[in-house]
Every structure is written in structure tokens, then in C-alpha cells.
Nucleic acid binder design. Structure first.
Lengths: 220, 220
DNA sequence: GAATACATTTTGACTAGTCAAAACAAACGG
DNA sequence: CCGTTTGTTTTGACTAGTCAAAATGTATTC
């Protein structure tokens, strides 16, 4: 049974490896885990010895099949718990991430299955993030973001890929939760600003970086 | 924030201190925690240094007010989680103890409050054990057991004070769950046997020890 | 009251995970 | 090409929790 620490490392590597060729730098991992870089090096070598990752010294780390399977399990627990906290316990959208961070390590498969059934086998969590299946299948779809989508198109928010409480509350406040209709009216690369409009709402300006964290799909 | 280990020690001390004058022996604690006695001595000294217990060397250990408050918190989490697992997730009566053992350390006050409300602020868990209140108030009532009650009286099971899966499954199988009607027809001290009868059920014989783990109150 | 039994405590050692700080490698700028 | 910057690895040390086994009290028995 992997320790809480191992589960956290694997989950982080999985989350950070989206984008690059699956290779995660020691620095990024240390940052995300709130740990000193040297610790990560030590720990990653231990994970590699257990066959959960491959470590390319001074280049980065990548999950093995076994490591990925474990990481997807943690992610599944995390996202199902989040869904439960929001849908059943009616907890605050922004606060559930921290709660799930704890519970994801304490929940057994038996409990998880019941929870999954109770929630109606959801495929995405309240932030719109996909929930891995029991065998680790991940409906990996490529979405545009508010930073990359076409202008003036009718769009729908599908996902918010930033778990920080400030960002989630900001998004919530302006109605940018999964399912919300939105339209980008202007994008100015030099100043790094994106302006959007929600039907019935005031125009909203945010940075390109923030816009890049909101995934969208064409309306209908 | 107390560690998982500290929480487990405190909870065990609380559970074992019922009966004796609150004084728990190192041996009993080691046994209950599945740890070697020397480890308990070391750990108890650390707990004492933190003001959570008082350690009377070679005599035993007792909770301080602070330790008791913490322990009751853990117990509250444990029993509310059990109630949730049985009442909402419809999990097996005998299996929930092990699950709750993990979850009790991962659940925050915020989540617990919602859970408590969802369950309708229950005062006992599925085994009939009382659930401590938010401020640690424990409805401490003295019950008779099947080993001590009067003969031929109409009784009702209120609580099963043995968390082992075998015992719980045995009790379940013979309808001895909280609320069940029962009557002791015979008790033979020499052989250590108790015979009972459930309305509409066959007579059942069990040992005095086992009978002592089933708390009852007079019918009506 | 001495001898024995039993529980408890002490001692030394080990594992998992972490940090601080020194040593190192690779890339980059001039 | 050489020096500097930047990220990575190594080293040594520390904490929490644990065990095995020896040492020590305390009780019990005769």
C-alpha cells in the first residue's frame, strides 16, 4: 500500500506532466509539493527503485505504467470526493479541494464504489475536471481556453484548471463555472488582457494567464 | 494539529479507560494498538510532555482534560462516519469500523458538520454507541448487559460493545442489533452459558463473555 | 522474607520523510 | 571559449514512530 507521501508525489507528477512530454522537472515538483528540491531528488530515486517512475537525472521524471495507474486512482478518489462534497454536502465550490486533498488518502475502494454509485457515476467533477474511471481510463479531450479560442464565438465553460481558492472564488463570483455561456469580445496580446462578456452580465477583463486556465467548447 | 498516531493513542486510551478509574495499563494499550509495549511507554511519555495525558510510571496512563477533548473529537468523527457509511452508503454493518478507522483522521470540522446535519444529528451510531457532541458531551448512561440483566424480562438491545467483525456478523446473523427485542431465558454461571430467545426466533446460546458485550434496556 | 513471575521501562537501532547547505552539471552570454 | 547563472544532486543531520532485547520494578507465591 503506497504511503500518503508516495500518493501525493505520483498525483503531482501526473498533474504536472500534462503538456510537456510527460517529463516533470524536479523544481516544478518541489514547488507543487511545498518541499525543498533536494527532498524531491531523494524521493524520486526511491519511487524509481519501486518502479513507479523513471528518473532521467537532471532532466526530469516520468510515470511508469504502474505509477500512472496509482496516480489515476488517487485522482479518481480526489475528484469523486470533491463531487460528493459539492453535490451532496453542498459545500463551497472553492473549499472542497483542500478537503479532498486529505480524504483522497483515506477512502477505500469499497466506499469509493458506493460513493460513485450515489453520485450517478459522474464523468467530471464540480470544476469540470474529468474523473478517471475505475480502470484509469481518462476521457482526454483537448479543449480551447479563453486565451486561445476564436473571438466573438458563443462558448460554454467546460472546466477551470486552477485549484487555488482565490481563483475559484474569483471565477465563481463572475459566473465562470462549468456550463456557463461566455464570449470573448477582445484579446490584446501586447497588454496581455482578455475581455469577455456573459449574457446578461457586465464585460469582464482578465489576464491571458488567467484566461488560459478556463477551458471552453463551442456552444451547442 | 495532532498526528494520526497521537489521535489513535488518545482514542484508545479513552475507550479502554471506561471501567477502571480511567487508568489504562501499558500492556492493554500496546495490545489494542498492535504495537510493542516499549513503544507505548515512549509514546505516552511524549503525550504526557504535551499535556494530553498524565503518566503514573508502572501504574498506567490517564487522559487530561485536553487529551479527553481531543479523544472525544476523534470518537465523534469515527461514529458519525460509521453512521454515514451505514445509513447513506448502505454499507455492511460489520465492515464500517475499519473504514471509519481511516476516515476519522482525514475529515475536517466543516465536512463533519455537514455530515452531522445530513444524518439528522444522530445521538448513537449503527452499533448503538453514543456519538459525542460538538463540545464533547457524551450521554453516558449505564446499561445492563445480557450477562447481568434479570431473567425472563422483555428487553431491547441498545448497543453492541464489540467492534470485531466476527462478533458483529455473528450478532447481525442472530438479529441482535440495536432495537431488537430479546429475553434471557436461562443463565448458568458454572458453565458460563446464557440462553436467550427472540420473538419468532429459535433459542440462542452464547457465552457470558459475549453476553456481556450486548447492552440492553427494559422493553418500553 | 526470599524467589520467582510479570509488566514496564530503557537502550540502541532502524525507516520514512524532511531540511540546510555544499558540490556539481549544463546551458547561456559575452 | 570561459565565466556565470540556474537547476539538480549530494551530504549530513534531524523528527516521528517503531522494534528487539536487555534491565528494572512490582507482585505473587511459597
Amino acid at each position: 500500500m503506497p504511503s500518503v507521501t508516495v500518493e501525493n508525489y505520483l498525483k503531482r507528477i501526473l498533474l504536472l506532466s500534462a503538456g510537456n512530454g510527460g517529463l516533470v522537472s524536479m523544481g516544478a515538483l518541489a514547488e507543487a509539493l511545498a518541499v525543498v528540491p533536494g527532498t524531491v531528488t531523494t524521493m524520486v530515486k526511491a519511487l524509481a527503485a519501486d518502479g513507479l517512475v523513471v528518473h532521467a537525472p537532471r532532466r526530469g521524471v516520468r510515470l511508469t505504467a504502474a505509477g500512472r495507474r496509482l496516480a489515476l486512482g488517487v485522482l479518481r478518489r480526489h475528484r469523486l470526493v470533491e463531487t460528493f462534497l459539492v453535490n451532496v454536502l453542498k459545500m463551497d465550490w472553492g473549499a472542497v479541494n483542500a478537503e479532498a486533498e486529505q480524504l483522497e488518502h483515506a477512502i477505500s475502494d469499497a466506499v469509493l464504489d458506493r460513493l460513485d454509485a450515489l453520485l450517478g457515476h459522474p464523468s467530471v467533477d464540480p470544476h469540470g475536471d474529468p474523473i478517471p474511471g475505475r480502470q484509469g481510463q481518462l476521457p482526454s479531450q483537448v479543449y480551447a481556453t479563453l486565451a486561445t479560442c476564436g473571438l466573438a464565438r458563443a462558448l460554454r465553460v467546460v472546466r477551470v484548471t486552477d485549484q487555488s481558492m482565490e481563483f475559484l472564488q474569483f471565477a465563481e463570483k463572475h459566473g465562470l463555472r462549468p456550463g456557463a455561456a461566455v464570449r470573448v469580445t477582445d484579446r490584446h496580446l501586447a497588454s496581455g488582457l482578455v475581455t469577455l462578456r456573459r449574457p446578461g452580465g457586465r464585460p469582464l477583463t482578465l489576464s491571458l494567464v488567467a484566461a488560459g486556465r478556463i477551458l471552453v467548447e463551442p456552444e451547442r
